[in-house]
Computed example of a mutant assay.
Amino acid sequence: MSSNALYTDLSDYYDLLCTDIDYEAQSHGAQRLHQLFGNGGNSHLDLACGTGPHVRYFIDAGYESCGLDISQPMLEMAKIRCPEAPFSLGDMCDFQVSEKLDLITCFLYSIHYSGELEALQKCLARVRQALKPGGVFCFNAVDKHKIDNNLCVSHSANHEGSHFTFSSAWYYGGLGDRQSLKLGICKTTGGITQTWHDEHPMVAVSYDQLKELLLPYFDVHIFEHDYDKITPWDQDSGNALFVCVKL
């Protein structure tokens, strides 16, 4: 199965897969960080926007928000959720904007979808080109050295007469710049269970590597992965928020 086949084939279930995510808290947290570090503007692009839930909250907060994603089925649902927003089909490692932006976000660890270090570096360069002076790039990332291969997150939901169980887990083999996101979906309808499994190739970086890639382009601030309060990174946790101001 290709790297995005699960999302393409099961895009109708994507919002169920992410039903335990607090999109509102994430969006408002990024907005607070933008108010602290940004240039005062309100133009915004959400990379890997999926079905557009973050874009919805940014628009409702007064931003001129748009989204970019590699999945056309996802974007079709995003257009329904946010009919007033422009959405573009494209690769976050190779995108351009017609007018420079004040804020670019990339939630849900989607920065790792770059796949490899060279592509990640291209993504960061594209982001810098797309930002106005003093513009902010806000994203979350996981440190490859802090991944616990034994951890798995799961939740269940009911939808249109079916019961779903979703699971996700990071895996890093310990060497190199590749990790993976393992996803699973079980759907039970009328006593019949169908199961899908997919493994998405992701770029693996340490925070030291990530800072080295960012520093030529940005003034970098790292915070604990907590959208409800702004706390400096404790230098130990493997999940963090990066707030990067264009130099």
Rank of each mutant, 00 (worst) to 15 (best):
Y63T: 04
D46E: 15
Q179V: 00
Y207L: 12
L101T: 03
Q129F: 05
Q31C: 07
D102V: 08
N239A: 11
P216I: 08
Y109E: 09
N4L: 13
H34N: 05
Q129T: 04
H34Y: 05
A119D: 09
F242H: 13
L175A: 05
D22Q: 13
G41E: 15
E160N: 15
D102A: 09
N149R: 06
N4S: 11
P133T: 09
N140L: 07
Y63W: 14
A30I: 01
F137W: 07
K144Q: 02
K229R: 12
T51E: 13
L215E: 11
V97S: 04
I192F: 03
Y14T: 14
G52S: 12
H197W: 03
K146V: 01
A5P: 00
P73F: 06
L89D: 13
P216M: 07
I59R: 04
K229D: 14
S156P: 13
I192Y: 07
H145G: 03
L151F: 08
E199S: 12
W196S: 05
F137T: 01
Q31P: 00
D20E: 14
F107R: 05
M202K: 07
N42T: 12
V205S: 06
A30V: 01
Q31F: 05
Y217K: 11
E118N: 06
M74Y: 10
Y57F: 14
A130S: 15
M92K: 10
G41W: 13
M74K: 10
F164H: 15
P73H: 02
T8C: 05
F223Y: 15
R178I: 06
T188Q: 14
F95L: 08
F58Q: 06
H28R: 13
F137R: 06
W196K: 01
F164E: 12
F37A: 05
D148H: 08
S65M: 09
A130P: 14
G62F: 10
S206I: 03
G135D: 10
